Computed example of a mutant assay.
Amino acid sequence: MATHKVGGEVDALCTRCKLTLAHTILAMVGTKIARVRCNTCGGDHAYRGAPGATDRPSSSSSTTRATRTSSGSSAASKAEKIIISFEEQLAGKDVANAPRYSPKDTYRMDQVIQHPTFGTGYVSAVRGDKVDITFRGDTKTLVHGRGGAPAEKPAFSPPVRQATGPADKPQPVGDTTEPAAEEAVEPPPASED
């Protein structure tokens, strides 16, 4: 059985060309090819093996199946997953004194947190200014340790209106479309009667 890797080539059925052609491997899940790109048309699609080709070993499959089923019970007991409930993970932690979550505070591993939206959770990972907090339903990545003074908001300065004209003629610098205060129209002089 050939070992495949991302960037390698494999023959696959192209969904656009409708032919078995050479493809470049784009993604793999474990040892299985997940996504490929056709070298002929450039189309990306899920991997579909060439018709008649399988990823199963072709050696005497009946004896292999019999061996698997007889030793399957011992393999199942070794691979049995242990699931720990959320309540069991919180057991022994100080839930009563859990602080309310704030991005300004700094948290440590296994610390219990009260979040206003997600409820009670505990810190399962700390990465720089981010923490992974495991809640009953999901694990969320939140920020922490940003307790500095609130940053001042930048002052708003509206854009300066520029004179517009034909694009092929240069505009004089400092020319605006609004008349300046000194250039205001003066009233005509009063007549002497």
Rank of each mutant, 00 (worst) to 15 (best):
T24H: 03
G165H: 00
S102F: 03
T141N: 08
A155R: 10
E186R: 10
L26A: 00
R127L: 14
V112T: 05
F135G: 06
I133T: 02
R16Y: 13
G128K: 02
A151F: 08
S61I: 15
L13S: 04
R37M: 07
T164M: 01
A27E: 10
T164N: 06
R108S: 15
E178V: 15
G43M: 14
A79E: 11
G30D: 02
V143P: 09
A46S: 14
A46L: 13
D129R: 08
S60I: 13
G121S: 04
T40G: 02
R68H: 10
T64N: 11
S85W: 00
D175L: 15
S77M: 12
L26W: 02
A76V: 08
D129T: 14
V36Q: 00
T177I: 11
D94L: 03
I82A: 08
D193K: 09
V143E: 14
T64I: 13
S77L: 12
S62T: 12
Y107V: 06
A167P: 10
F135M: 02
A125H: 04
I113E: 00
I133H: 05
V6I: 09
A2L: 13
I133M: 06
G148C: 03
T164Y: 03
Q114W: 03
I83C: 06
S77K: 09
S62E: 13
E178S: 11
A184P: 04
A22I: 15
I82P: 01
R48D: 11
E87Y: 07
Q171T: 13
L19Y: 02
K81C: 11
G128Q: 02
I82C: 04
S77G: 10
V29I: 13
